[in-house]
């Protein structure tokens, strides 16, 4: 490695333990780089599930769990139609990550931080809470639970009314434990968020009024109570009139959305999810307002039913594979989870 220790210290101050970890990660990612180079030299088709499994294990051993996670999903990439292009995309971005890690001293601090996060370095809560707090009225765009091995990951997608900023609250609950109560899609909450430092900040913690992050996702005082089964009454600002009018201060047009995504991808090329509230879009069976839906989201019948073929306001998660609809607001401005 040709990076001087002095340069590294300018990016992040390191303890001896961290220095030791960086040595292991560097070795692991250097191997990843060589392996990817071999794949492109010998042909994309020659690597199989077993190669990826081995690579995942070695990256985990090298303490680069983020990179390991990116390799672990290759199996699914290759199972889908059009896999050669998708696999090359994944390889290229993995290679980019390994190179960026190797040369992180040359990157602007926020991008260097993003690279470390993607590789698998965690950011402590204290560090996050030390970031500036963003106070806003946040609209809950959607909630999605994903069962992992021993925990359930819950993603709560938000957008701020005044700042227009997207946010992701990611919490993990042990599989056996009941999930914390989460405000349902369509609810709004007045809250201060602290964003994880990144080139395109998205993940955040909810900060309570004393400036400390509460355990789990607890509603700050004054926030509306969630109702059962998504039957959440529209907040005052959303009631009456067309949904587009009520949600106007959160929603963006398709063009604005694409511009925002372009900005996020430019800042963080590994961006794989970005929450948006689209205004006045008509859903089809494979697209939403002309933007493709991700393949598993095709035939979104509930969304189509609510739209009746007309324009609706829809919360979505942008992903490189296409949009994933989260919530649609019906004629009475009621949020309908999708």
């Amino acid at each position: 490695m040709s990076v001087s220790t002095a340069t590294l210290h300018r990016v992040i101050s390191e303890t001896p333990a961290q220095t030791a970890r960086h040595a292991r990660v560097a070795a692991g990612l250097a191997e990843l780089e060589r392996w990817l180079g071999d794949q492109v030299r010998l042909g994309l088709g020659q690597a199989g599930d077993r190669d990826w499994d081995d690579l995942v294990k070695r990256l985990v051993d090298a303490q680069a769990p983020g990179a390991a996670g990116l390799v672990a999903r290759l199996e699914r990439v290759r199972a889908a139609a059009g896999w050669p292009g998708a696999l090359l995309s994944e390889y290229a971005l993995l290679n980019l990550l390994a190179v960026a890690y190797r040369r992180r001293a040359e990157l602007p601090p926020s991008l260097a931080r993003t690279v470390l996060t993607r590789v698998g370095f965690t950011t402590s809560r204290a560090e996050v809470l030390a970031e500036p707090h963003v106070v806003d009225r946040w609209l809950v765009l959607g909630v999605r639970d994903e069962p992992l091995d021993h925990v359930t990951a819950r993603r709560v997608w938000l957008r701020g009314q005044a700042t227009g900023r997207p946010a992701l609250i990611l919490t993990f609950t042990p599989a056996a434990h009941p999930m914390d109560e989460t405000p349902p899609p369509g609810a709004t909450l007045e809250a201060a968020l602290a964003f994880y430092p990144a080139a395109a900040p998205l993940r955040a913690l909810v900060v309570d009024l004393d400036g400390e992050e509460p355990p789990g996702f607890v509603l700050p005082p004054g926030a509306v109570e969630p109702g059962p089964h998504g039957a959440f009454p529209a907040p005052d600002g959303l009631r009456g009139g067309s949904s587009a009018a009520g949600l106007g201060s959160w929603a963006v047009s398709v063009e604005e959305a694409l511009e925002e995504v372009a900005g996020a991808v430019a800042a963080d090329p590994w961006t794989d999810a970005w929450p948006l509230l689209l205004d006045g879009v008509v859903p089809g069976r494979a697209d939403l307002g002309g933007l493709p839906l991700c393949p598993v989201c095709h035939d979104p019948w509930r969304l189509i039913a609510v739209s009746g073929g007309g324009p609706v306001t829809v919360a979505v998660e942008w992903t490189p594979l296409g949009l994933r609809p989260l919530t649609v607001w019906d004629d009475d401005a009621r949020p309908v989870p999708l």
Binding site: S89, A92, L258, A262, P269, G290, L291
Partner: peptide, 21 residues
Amino acid sequence: LLGDAAVEVVRRRAGQVALDV
């Protein structure tokens, strides 16, 4: 190739346009 592909992937993701429906 991998470097060029990374540029192209990011270019395509950032440069997505809506289909004319």
